[in-house]
Amino acid sequence: MGGGMVGVVGDVVVAGSGLPDAGLVRKWLDEAADAPADLPDEGYIALLGADGPELEELCRAADRLRRQAVGDVLTYAVNRNLDTAAVAGTGAPARARLTALVAEARELGATEICMQGPLPADTDDDYLALIETIAAAGPIHLHAFRVPELLDGAARRNLPLPDFLAAARAAGLGSVPGTAARILDDEVRARMLGGPDLPVRRWTEVIEAAHRAGLFSTSTMVYGHIETPAQQLAHLRLIAEIQDRTGGFHEFIAMPFTPGPVSPGVGALPGPTWRQTRAVHAVARLLLHGRIANIQAAWPKFGFDAALSLLRGGANDLGGLLLDGALAPDSFAEAGITLTTREVERAAHTLGRTVRQRTTGYADV
């Protein structure tokens, strides 16, 4: 459960605390100094259980790799999030409202609209039509539609998925969120959902099809619920394998599980510990080194001060400012949670880094 380990995994001898022996962690820290992305499974599993001085050393190692990969730069994007259902509607007023929201975001300096969530089942709206409306109100980068929404869009148009993805890119879609990945383990996904979930194989096929269509994406992991360290590792390894095949991931985001309603067969879950959060971010930096250069500290999930700590332990990007605007500021789930450029600049000064606004694809603005 969460960050604990039970029994023996490879040569990982588990102590009574549920964490690996400190000497074993130090052994794998030494190995990681020369081959951070090439440890065997037991090495990464031990590092995911790092605590105390060994956790501090793991985070320092991850920070050194961050500097090697991207330098002493703190990046951020200026974006606005929209929930698909909140802006859907085929009538002229609904389309005018969406156009106005995009125009306002541009006026406030946004370079990205991020839109997620499914269309309501009973709507006569269409994903491609929404893409076209936003593109016409641009220019602005549209980062939109998770794997289930891409499948829904293809089904609504009665199109093969590759044809739908090509049409979406032609209409103005620039990239897709690699969310809805949760933990890429079929048993975990079914238990968390309380029933059948989109199979890992299918999720992988869709995200790779998006990459082949010229749509890059984020990669994510929701951790700190019922998964084991071995399942966290398998998730990271699958992300790395996809990247080796497609090169389509431009960043990795570890997102903590947020306790909510009790799921059948799971019970109440507290979410990850801070120790686990730091270890997950640091191990992601090690394992993905040479594959995915950008590790995001998802400040809306952790809080701003905690995100700064993660930026000292392997992360290099702060994510988006999440502009609200005056028009329909409640049109997305994180409404009311925003950053200012001044806050980002203060963070960069605290970290001793240069601040740089980036595009969705990490180019300079």
Rank of each mutant, 00 (worst) to 15 (best):
328 A>P: 02
255 M>K: 13
362 Y>V: 05
353 R>E: 00
75 T>Y: 02
171 A>K: 07
305 D>A: 15
71 G>S: 05
124 D>S: 10
154 A>V: 15
185 D>M: 02
129 A>N: 12
57 E>M: 05
177 P>M: 00
168 A>C: 06
330 D>H: 08
202 R>A: 03
356 R>Q: 15
121 A>Y: 01
167 A>T: 00
164 F>I: 04
291 R>W: 04
223 Y>Q: 04
341 T>D: 14
331 S>D: 06
295 I>Y: 10
165 L>K: 08
313 G>V: 06
295 I>T: 13
114 C>M: 13
364 D>V: 04
51 D>Y: 05
261 P>F: 13
168 A>M: 02
269 L>P: 03
127 Y>H: 14
187 E>A: 10
270 P>N: 12
87 V>D: 02
145 F>N: 10
354 T>E: 09
274 W>A: 15
67 R>E: 12
306 A>L: 00
187 E>P: 00
77 A>K: 08
125 D>I: 13
170 A>M: 00
198 L>Q: 13
329 P>G: 09
30 D>F: 04
154 A>W: 15
279 A>Q: 08
188 V>T: 03
298 A>C: 14
38 D>K: 09
252 F>M: 08
140 I>L: 01
159 L>N: 11
74 L>F: 01
280 V>N: 00
277 T>W: 01
90 T>V: 14
306 A>C: 01
263 S>L: 07
359 T>E: 05
309 S>Y: 08
318 L>R: 01
302 F>S: 01
3 G>Q: 14
49 G>C: 07
208 E>N: 07
359 T>F: 01
61 A>F: 02
76 Y>P: 03
93 P>Y: 09
191 R>V: 00
219 S>P: 01
29 L>F: 03
259 P>I: 12
308 L>G: 11
217 S>R: 09
178 G>E: 01
250 H>C: 13
21 D>L: 14
265 G>W: 11
13 V>C: 08
333 A>V: 03
139 P>D: 09
13 V>W: 03
94 A>N: 09
194 G>D: 00
178 G>I: 04
311 L>A: 07
59 C>K: 11
143 H>Y: 06
258 T>F: 10
142 L>Y: 11
364 D>Y: 09
326 A>N: 07
109 G>S: 05
208 E>D: 12
120 P>Y: 06
169 R>M: 04
161 L>R: 04
297 A>K: 12
326 A>H: 12
21 D>S: 14
36 P>I: 05
364 D>Q: 14
292 I>K: 09
194 G>P: 01
188 V>N: 01
314 G>Y: 05
259 P>M: 13
279 A>C: 06
118 P>F: 09
264 P>A: 08
22 A>Q: 12
218 T>V: 03
78 V>D: 05
360 T>N: 03
185 D>R: 05
183 I>Q: 00
177 P>Q: 02
51 D>Q: 07
19 L>K: 08
222 V>S: 06
45 I>A: 12
40 P>Y: 02
4 G>P: 14
205 E>N: 11
150 L>F: 05
336 G>H: 12
148 P>I: 04
119 L>Y: 08
300 P>S: 07
27 K>V: 13
98 L>E: 04
331 S>Q: 06
118 P>C: 02
32 A>C: 01
241 E>N: 13
18 G>V: 07
118 P>W: 07
140 I>M: 02
294 N>M: 13
262 V>P: 15
101 L>Q: 06
147 V>M: 13
308 L>P: 11
298 A>L: 10
189 R>S: 12
151 L>M: 14
